[in-house]
Design a protein around this nucleic acid. Structure first.
Lengths: 214, 214
DNA sequence: TAGATTGTTAATCGATTAACAATC
DNA sequence: TAGATTGTTAATCGATTAACAATC
């Protein structure tokens, strides 16, 4: 046993390309026309058309000279890349404003994500409704039941800095495979667990830096 | 007039380095010891120590062999880079859950950001309190007054997809210099206006993709 | 057909990694 | 001093850009 290969196959798609593919998808989902050219995409995202075409060589898609790319199949192809066809059930821990905002977010459906439960420890919040969901007490028992019943792999952390690591531990202990962390802390997770930090404040640092040099 | 130079001086710090510097700062602000080595930083962020040292060559900082980097001056140096010493007043448009979460976020202070007003058009929300702030009606008059009085340069967009572009237009028209957009739309802004998109959903796409290939 | 736009290869550019000298 | 860790240069790697042929 313990023959986990160390050679985790590197993403065959380069990281920068991958990040741009996400933006293309977001853009295409907003688009109403049927075709779009590499130039059309490029100018909305402030990149070059060559870059767009190059990026598309990583996915199985063909454009038509003089016309551009047919949007529906493009969306399909990108959807497959991100596993959007498969609906993932997720749970949210922390029913504060941020957790509530996510729980109610309508756009998840389009990207194959469904919030099936929201947890909190605050007695005032427990039992109250966030959208269609009633806030559940954050007990291991509840957690275990929900995770099992809905085959939940992804847990979202919307608690304070102080409790985030503990929440992460509990989630992982109960079978969660990926953490989406909104708390401004550097979490430690066991190998094999996917961790995605979504530090919401970093954006404003870029803004401050750009404004400064004007 | 109209002698705006097209040659916007490229960020002398490479983009990837810049992004990592933000992470270093976030990490250091959590750190309690006095010194940290490149190795110490590297392992928490899953990068190499060489990378950390190389990144630090872009800022004016010296480490001590055998000891590492003295954290307070490091924080100072990074703070200066991001313009954290200068407090920026920002306004939030949209007092839904997300806008409210941001308005109450305590961590802004540490990075030189202060929320001075929150706006909404919903009569139910207007006049109610979000933290210490009373929600103001989103009128150009109010906007103009607040922007002038608090010298606001940064506007945060926390409204729906549908209203985001219109809100952006109004903000820019009234003198806002930078937009921090949380709505899942590709905004169009005039040249010279800083735009930072914070698409909150992209993180989960990465997670889905990583889970898929297991 | 002519022209626009794609797709792809080659050239360039820039970032990361490796190696090692400097130094506390 | 010896050893650990920084700082920096050179080598490698990978991503972007440029050029142009293919094609609708």
């Amino acid at each position: 046993m313990s023959n986990l290969k160390k050679d985790r196959k590197p993403l065959e798609i380069p990281k920068p390309t991958f990040e741009r593919l996400k933006k293309y998808l977001a853009l295409l989902l907003q688009e109403e026309s049927e075709y779009i050219s590499s130039e059309g995409i490029a100018e909305k995202l402030n990149i070059t058309p060559e870059q767009v075409r190059k990026d598309f060589t990583y996915i199985n898609i063909k454009g038509k000279p003089k016309v551009g790319y047919h949007i529906p199949p493009l969306i399909n192809e990108l959807s497959e890349l991100f596993g959007i066809g498969v609906m993932d059930n997720i749970i949210i821990v922390g029913a504060g404003n941020l957790g509530s905002a996510l729980a109610k977010y309508a756009g998840f459906k389009k990207i194959g994500v469904r919030v099936v439960a929201i947890f909190d420890n605050d007695p005032v919040k427990i039992g109250s409704f966030v959208g269609e969901l009633s806030v559940l007490p954050f007990s291991e028992e509840n957690l275990k039941r929900v995770i099992k019943r809905f085959k939940v792999k992804i847990g979202v952390i919307c608690v304070t800095e102080e409790s985030a690591q503990e929440v992460a531990n509990v989630l992982v202990r109960n079978g969660i495979k990926a953490l989406w962390n909104f708390a401004p802390v550097t979490l430690k997770v066991p190998p094999g667990i996917v961790l995605e930090n979504q530090d919401i404040t970093t954006g404003v640092l870029t803004i401050k830096h750009l404004l400064e040099k004007k």
